[in-house]
Nucleic acid binder design. Structure first.
Length: 232
DNA sequence: GCGACAG
DNA sequence: ATCTTGTCGC
């Protein structure tokens, strides 16, 4: 159950699903955020179509100005195929390597992917949150599961994302007339707090600054083919 | 069996 | 996610 100790290639989709069901019980949806959120981190992974290398990037921004205070990257190897619902088994290993290089411990982490808006309530954001014991928010660009009404078209508009008769997240419009984002709590916070946090991290783009900047940094790391700690 | 399906 | 050139719009 521990990546560093478990040979990744021994994990089968079936065992991965069993593990998700176990871990999902430990996800906490109560707010455990500090009174004042000082640091918000964004994480993302990049790789080439036929390549075996994965590049993860973590960027830490300070609130409320969103200034970058730390950036790290890490390189890893593909050990699991992409299967909808099992994304964390593919991306978590390299993401964890990147977090090991982080000097700061952010109050919350924004992830490119789902939180509990997942078939077994354990999307990448939730899995990462449990692993790091940090508050995490799932910020996906498209839907994995769940139903929702027509999203509003103005920034700030949101509609509930429901799954099995429960609200597991929100479909949030981050820019006027632009395709909305799928927000769901990963760990240690609730839906409303997740949405509020994303809104407070919004710049002039569709994606909130933390994940947007992490995306760029991961792409840059991939292009350089190296992984080196950086100084802001 | 068929359609859906984060990144 | 990634592959790719131009192109429509604020």
């Amino acid at each position: 159950m521990d990546f560093p100790e478990l040979h990744p290639w021994d994990l089968t989709p079936k065992s991965a699903i069993a593990l998700q069901k176990m871990l999902a019980k430990r996800v906490c949806l109560d707010n455990r955020l500090p009174r004042e959120v000082r640091h918000v981190a964004g994480v993302d992974v990049s790789y080439r179509r036929g390549g075996r290398d994965f590049y993860a990037a973590v960027v830490v921004l300070q609130m409320p100005d969103l200034a970058v205070v730390e950036k790290v990257t890490a390189r890893g190897t593909v050990t699991f195929p992409y299967i909808p619902g099992l994304l964390s088994f593919r991306e978590l290993p390299v993401v964890l390597q990147a977090f090991k290089k982080l000097a700061l411990t952010p109050d919350v982490v924004m992830v490119d992917g789902q939180g509990i808006a997942h078939p077994r309530h354990l999307g990448l954001a939730s899995h990462l949150g449990l692993w790091l014991d940090l508050a995490t928010v799932g910020c996906a660009k498209s839907r994995l599961c769940g139903e929702h009404g027509p999203p509003g078209s103005r920034r700030g508009d949101r509609v509930a994302l429901r799954l099995e008769n429960e609200t597991v997240g929100a479909v949030l419009t981050t820019r006027n007339g632009i395709k909305p984002l799928y927000i769901s709590p990963g760990h240690l916070l609730d839906v409303d707090t997740s949405v509020d946090l994303v809104l407070r991290c919004l710049g002039r783009y569709r994606l909130p600054e933390p994940t947007r900047l992490a995306h760029h940094l991961a792409n840059e790391a991939r292009r350089h083919g190296i992984s080196a700690p950086l100084q802001p």
